Amino acid sequence: MSLTLSEAQAISVRVREHAAELGARVTVAIVDGGGHLQVLDRMDGAPPLSARIAPAKASSVALFHRDGGELIRMQQAWPSLFAQLDEVAGTPIVAGAGSRLIRRGDAVVGAIAVSGGMPEQDDECADAGIALVGAVGVS
């Protein structure tokens, strides 16, 4: 079963609430298992570029089936490969903090990425969204 729009929206609301608690202004992007955008939610005052970075990070995580931290390590290990992946994938490939897979059991049903805060804030906000996953029926 896929991640539903209502589930994605609920996760986004939780991320924005957590970001506000931290005093961060972020953009959250949630994609389906194929990396297609479901929700793009930019908080007032979030950096303009974050609205482009978040969807790219989310789709990258979904397409690779790896969280952002693992993608960063892969990018560091194989920089020449990552320099060419945008062309092969047909979409920007961005490895960064605040990006996580969303799973239902063992299946990847989507991904979330947060951009605009400090890296640790982006991570914490994404984790807050993932913590809600069980409550909205995605596990």
Rank of each mutant, 00 (worst) to 15 (best):
S12N: 03
G23K: 09
V109A: 13
A111L: 02
E7L: 04
Q75V: 01
R25S: 11
R14L: 05
L22H: 10
Q76D: 15
A107M: 05
E21W: 00
I93C: 08
A58L: 08
F82L: 06
A58I: 04
L85W: 02
A29Y: 05
G68T: 07
G116C: 02
G98A: 08
D122A: 11
V39C: 08
K57H: 07
A10W: 00
R14G: 06
Q84N: 14
G34L: 04
A107C: 00
S80P: 00
R52E: 14
V31M: 09
A24V: 05
D67G: 13
D127W: 01
R16L: 10
C125F: 08
S60K: 10
S2N: 11
A19C: 08
D41L: 07
H18F: 14
R66G: 06
M74D: 09
S59Q: 15
L5S: 13
L71W: 05
D123W: 00
Q121M: 07
S59D: 03
S80R: 14
G34F: 03
I72N: 05
G68N: 09
G45P: 03
A62N: 06
S99T: 01
D44T: 10
M1G: 13
F82Q: 07
R14E: 15
D44S: 10
A62D: 02
I112T: 03
R25E: 09
A29T: 05
S6C: 04
F64W: 14
L3V: 10
D122Q: 08
M43V: 03
S2Y: 07
L49F: 14
K57C: 05
R73P: 01
S6E: 15
L85G: 09
W78N: 11
L81G: 04
R66I: 00
S12R: 11
F64S: 14
Q121I: 05
S12H: 11
L3R: 14
P79V: 05
G137A: 11
A97G: 02
P79K: 12
A10H: 11
A19M: 13
L101K: 06
R14S: 12
G90F: 01
A111V: 02
I72W: 06
P48L: 12
R103E: 02
L5W: 12
V88G: 05
